[in-house]
Write a protein that binds this DNA or RNA. Structure first.
Length: 261
DNA sequence: ATGTCAACACCCTGTTGA
């Protein structure tokens, strides 16, 4: 089974890329972030035509996440628990019946947090990470294969970016951010990419600006974190870097993981 | 030295959020 995560930076602007990618990459489950669309505006027909089931948690203008899947989820939950006042659409969970049990898959768009001196943005990021930790802890007690996939807006290690010095004071790389990410890992979650390779210079995002892509000035911020039950079944991973070279690309590329049936 | 993009509001270019 192939599970992918991809921040598409606007589903309506990216529909041609999305269709091409689904046809070529053919993930069983795709976690999308930054659909930048309300649920009614999501181009679901184009996706359903390809044989995918569509579940969205949209929002006007920005944010928004979705789950595309070849099989219909048994259960879908929208929103990250822990703050009823949070109106940003950044989280959707689906439970899928597979051979020999279930796969619980979440598409998450963790807050960026910049600028760090903003009174709201960085505290919101850290609070969101705390809520994600509480959620993960609770779900891991179920002892099921769990995949928390998405745009974490976290550069875990210095070698996960082209030039660590540039990111030193950034919300994606601050010590407190990386510590909160380690707290997640320390619950017993495994990063699929890092479980498969110790290669450095692996990136999932290249800024549109300043020739970041041709210079390979990227960062690795899109991750699939796996519960022990999912990690036990991990076969391999890939970062589909070629997608960044397509016409009218997203600034992120898909990160994928294969699991034994 | 600079370099981008998408969506929105309001009307066509500026603002917001990446």
């Amino acid at each position: 089974m192939k599970i992918a995560t991809w921040n598409i930076n606007g589903v309506k602007a990216r529909i041609a890329n999305l269709v091409q990618w689904l046809e070529q990459s053919a993930p069983d489950i795709a976690c999308l972030q930054e659909i930048k669309s309300v649920d009614e505006g999501f181009p679901r027909l184009e996706i359903e035509t390809l044989g995918y089931h569509v579940e969205t948690h949209g929002q006007k203008g920005f944010n928004g996440v979705a789950l595309l899947s070849k099989i219909k989820p048994d259960e879908v939950n929208r929103g990250l628990p822990g703050d009823d006042t949070d109106e940003q659409a950044r989280f959707i969970e689906g439970v899928f019946s597979v051979e020999g049990g279930v796969f619980r898959v979440c598409s998450l768009y963790l807050p960026n947090g910049n600028p760090v001196d903003d009174p709201v943005k960085y505290p919101y990021k850290l609070a969101w990470m705390k809520r994600l930790k509480a959620f993960a802890e609770q779900r891991m007690a179920l002892e099921e294969p769990l995949v928390l996939a998405g745009d974490y807006n976290v550069i875990p290690q210095p070698f996960d970016c082209h030039d660590p010095a540039v990111w030193a004071g950034d919300a994606l790389f601050l010590p407190t951010t990386r510590q909160a990410y380690r707290e997640l890992e320390n619950l017993g979650l495994t990063c699929a990419t890092r479980a498969s390779t110790d290669e450095t210079g692996l990136y999932s995002f290249w800024d549109y600006q300043a020739g970041a892509w041709p210079k390979n000035n990227g960062i690795r911020i899109d991750h699939l974190l796996l519960s022990p039950e999912a990690a036990d079944r991990l076969a391999s991973t890939a970062i589909e870097k070629h997608v960044r070279g397509w016409e009218k690309p997203s600034d992120h590329v898909p990160v994928v993981a294969w699991f034994n049936a």
